[in-house]
Design a protein around this nucleic acid. Structure first.
Lengths: 196, 196
DNA sequence: CAAAAAAACTAATATGCGTTAGTTTTGCTG
DNA sequence: CAGCAAAACTAACGCATATTAGTTTTTTTG
């Protein structure tokens, strides 16, 4: 018999959620079994149920924890005063840092939300939509102030969000590019383009 | 009893693969069952096996069909003569068109390749890596010719590929932005930036 | 140190899965 | 229309799954 070790500054439940995020990222939510998860914690599958309600609850915790963090940051940024460009830059930097600090959880929220049950699925999509709309408003503010080029704001948001989401593929290049270089180059690319 | 209707200019197997792509995109490969697939074709699950080898084979067909199309196009573009920028532009346009014409299959190849068994998983990743490397070489060519800004080519490729991959989220906005507007705006954004 | 609570265990349940075997129906071909 | 191949069907297999029930072990508490 082994024991579940609580997460740093957290409960045993938190520890399970963290391991679940790693496992769900690696294998996908459906393909990852509770036995896999239990094994990775050195425990039998049924023992997990002393701490959690269900497998689905784990996914919900992960997805909404991530959503909350992004929402808090975006709210701070959109409600701040000042030029749009530096605020946009701050948001991109935040996305990059989230992808580095909470890689597994962000990855799972991005890829496995489909497996959420109702009403969580609907809530999650609604939060995403709201996030997108706030960002669209920020772009429009920038275009109106002539800080940004005239561009269809939906397209700009799509490009921005997709680009930062793609940071999940960056793990492979960690050796050749540092996080700082990445940040600088990506922000430059997204804000000022590739062409000399 | 119903019947499987062959794909236009194709076999019944092709028809199954097409439906599988749609189903795998909607529910994910693991969550999608052969019974789901059969039902969507108006047939019993076991009947599918008169035409296909296995569920896994369906995923393999989808992933490698997509990979082949992308590889062919990139080979044509990288081996062409001329300036880098218009070639890069052509590649981005190709990605956009693929996402519109073969949405389900591209989506599945992008999201479900993890579920490929060896040696297909290894082959697929190798093809992706080669694709990325060719694109990096193209960017480096552009930087050397001073057509492009000095940027870490890994970052540029990551940003470009991620942005076009994100087109899968565009279905929602089809009403407010046409494919042509999307193409123009995204290419402008990626090549010349957002800032006025 | 005894009682109580927490958390592990074993065993089992019901369900759904991919796939196979064997059989029947359909539809083409001579 | 007979014979044959293609393709559908029903039924079942073996296996993995999430979860529950009941029990035992460990840890905490008074």
């Amino acid at each position: 018999m082994s024991k579940i070790i609580p997460a740093r500054n957290g409960t045993k439940k938190d520890a399970i959620i963290l391991k679940a995020a790693t496992l769900f990222r690696k294998k996908g939510y459906v393909a990852a079994s509770m036995r896999d998860l239990a094994e990775s914690m050195g425990v039998e599958a049924s023992s997990l149920y002393n701490h959690i309600g269900s497998k689905q609850e784990l996914l919900q915790s992960i997805c909404f924890k991530v959503a909350l963090k992004f929402n808090n940051e975006l709210t701070a940024i959109t409600s701040a005063k000042g030029k749009v460009v530096p605020r946009l830059e701050a948001l991109i930097r935040f996305h990059i840092h989230m992808m580095i600090d909470a890689y597994d959880e962000v990855h799972v929220a991005n890829h496995e939300w489909k497996q959420l049950h109702e009403p969580y699925l609907g809530n999650f999509l609604q939060e995403r939509k709201a996030y997108e709309n706030s960002l669209i408003a920020l772009i429009e503010e920038g275009t109106a102030a002539k800080e940004l080029k005239p561009i269809h704001p939906h397209v700009a948001v799509l490009t921005l969000l997709s680009a930062v989401r793609g940071l999940e593929f960056w793990q492979r290049h960690k050796k050749s590019v540092t996080a700082d270089e990445l940040e600088t180059d990506m922000i430059n690319h997204l804000l000022t383009g590739l062409i000399q």
